[in-house]
């Protein structure tokens, strides 16, 4: 029989391991509600709403720090990024973020926020420790979606009026390339190996696939729906699939990233907008802006398994720890 100290250690490790596994499988999901000025918190284990956090006026873009301890929410009418403590679910700081901030991304190390400034045609780099703006970088006209490469070295900023992606080198803090994509690009997402990225074109009704090292579009995937108006895009952790929220056709397109083809469309609620996926890749959460619900998709069966009522005008989704 093992001595007590060894049994206790093993039990502790087992408990810790269970905790970690549980946290990985069943994170919290955060939904920004544009018209009810709140963030809905969903427990992914039960897919039940566990909290609603008042955050400020017109919350849209939302992200979580890599350690899961902090939630960031862009408040368009307050001109700030709200910093929410995930444990206490209270706003602990507000970072100035130019006029009407809408979209941003958190760097993989959690040290920076990259924010698009739609009216100023710039992207701001914010230090998450101090809230100070480290740099302001000119990008295309009417910048919108922001994505950071998995290695943190590149930031993509879509520009809706110039139909471009501005590629920002995060070390040099400047735009190093501009890529022409479809009409009115909204969001982009990198595949896990960082070699490719996908960009939605709302008016173009298509997804541009970019060869990241070459800064070149290698494919344009038409979404074969009447006026699909694609907006959000997320890539499965395996890199095999990408999911696109079609705000006009009320479905989610499933794209085979290797074969560069759309394999199916999954019907969801009305005006799907933001979407995100759990780190294990098993569940996809889709914010339906007009239905005021979140559709939960089982990625294996490619079906909606539940629909959760949330606040008014659900816009963005972030997955925590």
């Amino acid at each position: 029989m093992a001595p007590n100290w060894m049994r206790l250690t093993l039990l502790s490790l087992a408990a810790f391991g269970t905790l970690i596994a549980s946290a990985a499988a069943d994170p919290l999901v955060y939904v920004s509600n544009e018209r009810s000025n709140s963030v809905t918190v969903i427990d992914a284990a039960s897919d039940k709403v566990v909290a609603s956090i008042p955050v400020g006026n017109r919350p849209r873009g939302i992200g979580v720090s890599p350690d899961g301890k902090t939630i960031y929410v862009a408040l368009g009418h307050d001109n700030v990024i709200a910093v929410v403590d995930a444990a206490s679910r209270a706003v602990k700081a507000r970072f100035a973020a130019g006029t009407d901030p809408e979209a941003f991304a958190v760097s993989p190390d959690g040290a920076r926020l990259y924010v698009s400034n739609e009216d100023a045609n710039t992207a701001s780099v914010i230090d998450t420790k101090t809230g100070k703006v480290l740099a302001t970088i000119p990008v295309g006209t009417e910048p919108e979606g922001v994505a950071v490469s998995p290695d943190g070295r590149l930031v993509y900023v879509t520009a809706e009026t110039t139909h471009t992606i501005s590629v920002i080198d995060t070390a040099a803090l400047k735009t190093v390339a501009t890529i022409l994509v479809g009409s009115r690009p909204r969001e982009s997402a990198f595949v896990p190996d960082g070699q490719r990225a996908l960009v939605t074109a709302e008016i173009g009704g298509a997804v541009s696939v970019i060869d990241v090292p070459k800064n070149a579009v290698v494919a344009t995937l038409k979404l074969d729906r009447p006026a699909p108006k694609p907006k959000g895009v997320v890539v499965h952790p395996s890199g095999k699939w990408a999911y696109v929220a079609n705000g006009g056709s009320n479905d989610v397109a499933v794209i085979d990233v290797q074969e560069l083809r759309v394999v199916t469309f999954i019907p969801v609620g009305i005006r799907p907008w933001g979407l995100n996926i759990t780190r294990d890749g098993k569940k996809l959460y889709v914010a339906n802006g007009v239905s005021e619900t979140v559709s939960v998709i089982d990625t294996a069966s490619q079906k909606v398994v539940t629909t959760i009522p949330v606040g008014k005008g659900p816009w963005g989704i972030a997955v925590g720890r």
Binding site: E160, H163, G182, S183, I203, G204, K229
Partner: peptide, 11 residues
């Protein structure tokens, strides 16, 4: 028939 964006929400 290239889709032009006139800020009217349609191609």
């Amino acid at each position: 028939a290239h889709p032009f964006d006139g800020h009217k929400g349609e191609a």
